[in-house]
Amino acid sequence: MNLTLKIWRQKNATSKGRFVTYKVNDISTSSSFLEMMDVLNESLVMKGEDPVAFDHDCREGICGACSMYINGHPHGPDKAVTTCQLHMRKFSDGETIVIEPWRARPFPVLKDLIVDRSAFDKIIQAGGYISVNTGGIPDANAIPIPKVKADLSMDAAACIGCGACVAACKNASAMLFVSAKVSQFALLPQGRIEAAERVQAMVAEMDKQGFGNCTNTGACEAECPKEISISNIARMNREFLSAKVCAPKVKEMNEGGG
């Protein structure tokens, strides 16, 4: 198949970007979207031009590196896939495809389609963990966990941190990402222990990073490659409200508390 690509090109974080149009020919329908990009880049290199820079790594839909906003959808038109698992059979011959980077203030463009998503790491660092050190742990079966809860926790934990939720949200909100981590722990007895501190710290960091607010539009859920449910957002809201209302007043989380 032959395609026309309109791709956002931007030299670096400080320069102004623009759309550049490319043609690619003889693309197999069974190749993946990124393999199509490889073909384009190979031809650009041969012409001595700068290839299109994009994040990608595992190409199995699990590392969460790839991040292209394709024809108005993060990760393209197919449901429940990352860009690397999107296949060209989802497009038709002669189609024009517009490829943009994730757009959000906390995700500045570094080059072409590569954005800086370290804001997500910062949110996890604020509290996305259970504070246990290595070693000295009781037996894994010491705390039985209801299967239903463990499964729900796993549903939330399936998040790959790609940022499609932010990219899809009209408000560039990170609520789905944050709530997935909050939910994973909130559902487990191990995670309950510091649940109140966790949700407050992570939400505060999320706001600090400059993400938008959740208006319950549901675009995040619709575009999430791992189909994380917005019921997690409700759970986080619940956790947050009850933490704000009920948790006792404590001093700033100190060294030992984190």
Binding site: V98, R105, A168
Partner: peptide, 16 residues
């Protein structure tokens, strides 16, 4: 706040 969170808009707005 929401508008500020996305200073650069998409060329193709969301079809989600």
């Amino acid at each position: 706040q929401n508008w500020l969170a996305r200073p650069t808009r998409y060329k193709v707005e969301g079809y989600s």
